[in-house]
Write a protein that binds this DNA or RNA. Structure first.
Length: 745
DNA sequence: TTCAGAAGGATTTTT
DNA sequence: TCCTTCTGAA
């Protein structure tokens, strides 16, 4: 790009600009500074991996506000994850020491919720609409299947859900989806889609896709609302623009329709969300969509060694659909990229965990292990535990998707709005209170015919005495439970939550079970109450609490302090680590077999590219020559990923000659490791007075490596205290119970 | 209506 | 291998 064409504005220091901002601008290279200081009209920042993307946006926000170009409330920055938003918010606040009000940094989804909470009425929704996650969608679809007399085995609900979501992300209605689809099941899916959408609206619910779609609908149908938002946000900044899908693009267009000051940052080589409708053409087409756009390319990489960059560029240059850019770094050549072909998946995990063990002996560098599919983490977790290496897993079952947590939240929703069918159905017989399948089927049938909510139907059935005595009584009790609980919501959120859980008998039912599992659930509920209390302290209400719970994702728990992180390649985007392992570099896994069939090879390649460019210093690529077939001990040969062959071969080093002794129990390989009680643990524990030394069962603790955990047991042994602490979220629940009991001595 | 035991199915990636 | 769903008995 010709730099002379756009002269850099002189950096006239005004008194309004904090000095720090001024000196920050001096730090930037010419392109970055241009990207930061150009404040008129559309701007596309094509940023390579590790080129300081986030930094550029953050500085830009600070620049706009610090220079007095606009007020904080006139800036809207959009990211894809809550985590990214949070981080950016923090950075902006640090840059601008004196800020009356913070600029809005938000994800597409949470921004949409914010707008919809205000204007849902215009679209025929109540403003207390519920946000449905995948589970809710599936249970709603189950009812749709009942209504349509569809068999699950004809078209699996899971598939229907995915197809509907995809259609919505492409902006399709049930009808337009049917027209455009070659799928033989399309007529069935389309009819389910139609009923699903109707029922969802009747239940005053929105799924994730609706959040965006309905916001777009709102802005396009209501000129006043659009103008209001579009003129409020004088400056619009969109991160990861290559991941926007059609509805998101339309949202952006609406928001930019008054001022047109949109800055989009993206990297077409990192577009990895096509499955959720992300359209790489959005970024390729930017200059056409926003005429007069200036394009800035950030090609200098500040993250990786030249070797890593060459490898990554070499790989992704096999893709045809890209604008092309040449990454370079002022840094050194760095180490070779090591490839380890393992004999078996176990050997692969063994290699990785031992290498990590070695690394940790002489450095504190953070290490990431990346993989294509979540289940690949398991064998590795086992291996890491054998060596007692602390790690943190992203993904899997998140706190807010646990059954008991979702039940508790459903109680809150149902009490607040009993006509919320989805929540009501979730808890009507949880704990079991004699409202069984037969009764519910009858009620649903009734509700369906009259187009009434489940709640209405129940009340009608009670007045008309239409049900057998036992069911009648059970329903009467349930109705009064919900009605009696309503005033409880007036009290502070944490108390309300506790009250509802008590009144419903949920807590008591768990307590009665006296199993380890029930106990864990109780502790989780306790943690939820704590979280609610924290929300209250931040001055947030119930709606915010529920929204956050719904939009919360595992990535958001990412903990800067853990030194070994396990996550999918998707989750790794936007992060960086000194050392990166990419495991499972096999045909069928990376690229994934389903993607090869669907001809999404380029996306898989980009995914691999994303993985490679996370690394600052060192990359290991591993694969197994054999893989275990579904069940049993049958092994099958597997081929190394074609991407390994596409990498520039001179950058690779084959480690197959290096062999490790196989791990044997009791051979002294597993080092005994003592964890000192971190200060934060003491801090937490000492607040509660009870048990020996102030340590108490069930207390929440914070550990540097594992994040938040809980004290399971406290025993005195001689002069020492033996405290058993459990850290949830580390692995699959069962494994967790077996292994993740960490002794803090 | 509920619980327990058995059989069968599953594995892409996420807000 | 593990988890979910189905089936039948109390």
């Amino acid at each position: 790009m010709d730099k002379t064409e756009h002269k850099l504005p002189a950096l006239a220091p005004k008194s309004a600009i904090p000095n720090s901002l001024n000196s920050l601008l001096q730090d930037l290279n010419d392109e970055q500074r241009l990207a930061v200081t150009r404040t008129d009209g559309p701007l596309l920042i094509l940023a390579g991996a590790g080129s300081g993307k986030t930094r550029t946006i953050t500085y830009k926000i600070a620049y706009l506000i610090g220079q007095g170009i606009c007020r904080p409330e006139n800036v809207l920055a959009v990211t894809f994850t809550n985590k990214a938003a949070e981080e950016m918010r923090g950075r902006v606040e640090r840059l601008l020491e004196t800020l009356e009000s913070p600029p809005l940094v938000s994800t597409f989804h949470s921004f949409s919720v914010r707008v919809l909470r205000r204007h849902a009425g215009l679209l025929g929704y109540g403003s207390d609409f519920a946000i449905c996650d995948e589970d809710d969608q599936k249970s709603l679809l189950k009812q749709v299947y009942d209504e349509l007399k569809l068999q699950d085995n004809l078209v699996p609900i899971k598939r229907t859900r995915a197809v509907i979501s995809r259609a919505k992300n492409q902006g399709c209605s049930p009808e337009s989806y049917l027209e455009g689809s070659a799928d033989p099941d399309a007529p069935i899916i389309s009819s389910a889609f139609k009923v699903y959408q109707r029922r969802l609206k009747e239940a005053n619910g929105m799924d994730f896709d609706d959040l965006i779609l309905l916001t777009v609908q709102l802005l396009s149908e209501h000129d006043k609302v659009r103008e209001r938002y579009a003129s409020t946000y004088k400056y619009l900044l969109i991160d990861e623009y290559q991941d926007t899908n059609l509805p998101q693009f339309e949202l952006v267009k609406h928001l930019a329709s008054v001022h047109g000051n949109i800055s989009a940052v993206g990297d077409e080589d990192q577009s990895i969300y096509r499955f959720r409708g992300a359209d790489i053409n959005n970024i390729l087409r930017f200059e056409r969509d926003f005429p007069g756009a200036v394009v800035v390319k950030l090609e200098q990489n500040y993250r990786s060694t030249q070797t890593i960059l060459d490898a990554a560029t070499g790989l992704v240059s096999h893709n045809l659909k890209r604008k092309g850019k040449k990454l370079w770094t002022a840094g050194g050549k760095g180490e070779s990229i090591d490839v380890f072909p393992a004999e078996s998946p176990e050997a692969e995990a063994d290699f990785v965990s031992r290498s990590i063990y070695q690394f940790q002996k002489d450095s504190k560098d953070r290490i990431a292990v990346l993989y294509r599919t979540n289940f690949l983490s398991r064998q590795l977790e086992d291996a890491l535990r054998r060596l007692q290496i602390a790690y943190r897993l992203l993904g899997g079952v998140s706190f807010y998707s646990r059954k008991e947590v979702k039940d508790a939240l459903a109680y809150l929703r149902a009490v607040r709005n009993p006509n919320d069918d989805i929540s009501l159905a979730r808890i009507i017989n949880e704990p079991a209170r004699g409202i069984g399948k037969t009764t519910l089927d009858r009620l649903w049938e009734e509700a369906r015919q009259k187009h009434h909510s489940l709640w209405q139907t129940i009340k009608e059935a009670l007045t008309s005495q239409a049900l057998p005595g036992r069911a009648h009584l059970a329903l009467e009790k349930f109705v009064s439970l919900i009605e009696v609980s309503a005033p409880v919501l007036e009290s502070p959120l944490d108390q309300a939550l506790r009250g509802v859980l008590q009144a419903s008998g949920y807590i008591q039912a768990l307590e009665k079970q006296e199993t380890e599992e029930a106990n864990e659930r109780l502790l989780n509920l306790e943690e939820l109450v704590t979280a609610a209390a924290e929300h209250v302290q931040q001055g947030l209400g119930m709606t915010d609490f529920l929204d956050n719970a719904a939009l919360y994702s595992d990535t958001d728990e990412y903990d800067q302090n853990a030194s070994v992180l396990l996550m999918t390649l998707h989750n790794a985007k936007g992060l960086e680590f000194p050392v990166v392992f990419i495991i499972g570099c096999e045909e069928g896994l990376l690229p994934h077999s389903l993607s090869v069939e669907a001809d999404d090879l380029e996306e898989e390649r980009r995914l691999c590219y994303v993985g490679l460019t996370r690394a600052q210093k060192k990359i290991y690529l591993t694969f197994s020559k054999r893989k275990r077939f579904n069940r049993g001990d049958v092994y099958e040969n597997s081929k190394p990923s074609r991407f390994l062959a596409e990498l520039p071969q001179h950058l690779l080093r084959d480690l197959s000659a290096r062999s490790f002794q196989p791990a044997r129990a009791g051979s002294g390989i597993a080092p005994s490791k003592t964890y000192n009680t971190p200060d934060s643990v003491r801090h937490f524990l000492e607040k509660k007075k009870a048990a020996p030394g102030g340590f108490v069962k069930g207390a929440l603790v914070q550990h540097n490596d594992f994040g938040r955990g809980r004290v399971l047991d406290v025993q005195e042994s001689g002069e020492d205290l033996k405290i058993t602490v459990q850290f949830p979220g580390i692995g699959i629940k069962k494994l967790l119970q077996r292994y993740a009991k960490l002794k803090l001595v």
